[in-house]
């Protein structure tokens, strides 16, 4: 008789290559977290040692990074190589993903904003870019909301233009309190200074 815990254990292992390594090195420390039959333990023992298990782990990571790349394109550009490190930290702290784009993007955005807030992440202009892209995410998936007012500490248009030129890291933008109306027209982003 198969148990729901087998499915939970398999999914948990796919989400964590570190846990896979731990299960191979110290099986009870992982398997005993689940109510598994001997047959199910035999199956997990087998799949953990198959080449395809690392493919499953990679596919999981690819499918979780896709919403972030798709909806937070400028954030991803700004973070560069740091994105993967931060995404992995996020996945560890937020393992129960629905993979609904809206929720996944919002949760990752809030995770980054919280790190910026307490100062464990320091990235110039990231807060502005995140505020903008989280607003776009909400507009994209919540048809009842047709526009958002977003407040920035630096002029978001100047940031976007500098990113477009590839000069954001070398430019020193003036700190200024501004608000924009953000809306989508034919799926194209529109910004109106308030």
């Amino acid at each position: 008789m198969n148990s729901p815990d087998f499915q939970l254990a398999f999914a948990t292992l796919i989400a964590s290559p570190q846990l896979c390594k731990q299960a191979i090195a110290d099986e009870p420390s992982v398997f005993d977290q689940f109510a598994l039959t001997e047959k199910e333990k035999t199956r997990l023992r087998s799949v953990l040692r198959q080449k395809g298990m690392s493919i499953c782990c990679s596919l999981y990571r690819m499918n979780r990074i896709t919403p972030l790349y798709t909806q937070l394109t400028q954030t991803a550009t700004l973070l560069g190589d740091e994105l993967i490190t931060l995404a992995e930290e996020f996945w560890e702290s937020y393992p129960d993903s629905s993979l609904q784009f809206k929720e996944e993007v919002l949760a990752f955005g809030q995770f980054l904003l919280a790190k910026l807030e307490v100062g464990t992440l320091k990235f110039p202009y990231l807060q502005e870019i995140l505020r903008l892209e989280l607003a776009i995410n909400e507009l994209s998936y919540t048809p009842a909301i047709i526009e958002k007012t977003v407040h920035f500490d630096y002029d978001i248009v100047a940031i976007l233009l500098a990113m477009d030129r590839g000069t954001l890291q070398t430019e020193r933008l003036q700190k200024v309190q501004v608000a924009y109306k953000v809306y989508l027209e034919e799926q194209t982003l529109k910004l109106a200074l308030l």
């Binding site: 999914a11 796919i14 499953c56 129960d96 629905s98 993979l99």
Partner: peptide, 27 residues
């Protein structure tokens, strides 16, 4: 296959990939 696992929250946990079912009688 299975891809969703029930949670207490409003959304189900998504396993990230479609995991084949074992080809057993109870399945």
């Amino acid at each position: 296959s299975f891809i969703k696992l029930p949670t207490k929250g409003p959304h189900d946990h998504n396993a990230g990939i479609a995991i084949p079912v074992p080809y057993d009688k109870d399945y």
